[in-house]
Design a protein around this nucleic acid. Structure first.
Lengths: 178, 178
DNA sequence: TGTGACATGTAATATGTTACATGATTGA
DNA sequence: TCAATCATGTAACATATTACATGTCACA
């Protein structure tokens, strides 16, 4: 196939942002992301890099500056174009809606007894608060760097966490009213 | 394997909420969801239902009330327990963080020229506004029903859209400042 | 000298998408 | 009668996860 997945595009983006760099460096970016969606598993990253290289969206050349085995990856002109196309309006439906696993669970919350509903919401609120602290710390780190879009992404993640906490408070009220 | 995926759990939930019902009815719930994440493809739903039936989490019996071929599915006791376990704290990491494809794209927005950044953000804001209208309409429909959790989920989706629009306005400001 | 990070990969497996195929029933 | 919807599935393909395998290098 020659249509690129979200992962493919994000890999291109990371190579563009951090390249020239090794595949391992790319992988680290995904591993260090808080999102469990970007697992950074070797079995996903390396085959994808190989495919993107074969499609000539990524340039790869052996690194001779060190004796350690390793290739230096960078974004080719075609790769830059692929990123630009990905960001070109109009965005397709899949690019617009977020996916919130808490919303998924709340959808079926009525299936369990009221006491468990309350425990679910209370625990989720606590865990969300903990994540908010982690995200704040990430935001501070990003502000030390020089990439304004990294900072914006951290701010977005933070705002999302806060909005979801406010929403969960509403869920808590509904649950408590029974 | 005997560990259940998000889709498996959501299928159990839908069978619990709407059952006894046909597999097609379950599939429709996913097809009608606004989220492109729940594709509702037959190749996902029917094999999953078969597996869940084999695991005795779903009860299946032939429908004789109509001459149309079709099985009536319902949640078994073990199935109810599986849903309850899914909702039992503490939630695992994957259940807490949302995934926002717009945030993913903004992360690499610096790779394209300023003019395209502006077009991206402006278009995303418009498309988000349109989705907000659709979601409001869904919310009104849900309020006509009798499932408070359906309404809460619609409200959550709406709040999320609004929070993301406010965030995108911040992104727009950053983009405009260059 | 050995631990942990760097660096790259593969094999088995699970899961999901797309596209196709079949046939019954409802309603215009 | 014809189209749309109901209803269930399958085959080929793409993709991702887990777990394993291999070897280098820095540093304590």
């Amino acid at each position: 196939m020659d249509t690129l997945t979200e992962l493919d595009h994000m890999i291109l983006g990371v190579v563009g942002l951090y390249g020239p760099c090794t595949g391992y460096r790319v992988r680290r970016v995904f591993l260090e992301s808080l999102s469990p969606h970007w697992s950074g598993s070797a079995g996903a990253i390396y085959p994808a890099l190989e495919r993107l290289t074969r499609l000539e969206l990524v340039d790869s050349k052996d690194d001779h500056t060190t004796r350690r085995q390793g290739k230096l990856l960078s974004l080719s002109q075609a790769g830059k174009k692929a990123v630009a196309t990905w960001l070109k309006p109009p965005l397709d439906a899949g690019a617009l809606l977020d996916l919130d696993p808490l919303r998924t669970r709340v959808r079926v919350l009525g299936l369990v007894p009221p006491a468990q509903r309350q425990r679910f919401v209370a625990s989720a609120l606590e865990q969300l608060a903990a994540l908010e602290q982690e995200t704040r710390s990430m935001l501070r780190d990003s502000e030390a760097g020089d990439d304004p879009y990294h900072t914006l992404v951290c701010k977005g993640a933070l705002k999302s966490l806060q909005a979801r906490r406010r929403w969960l408070a509403e869920v808590a009220a509904e649950v408590a009213s029974k």
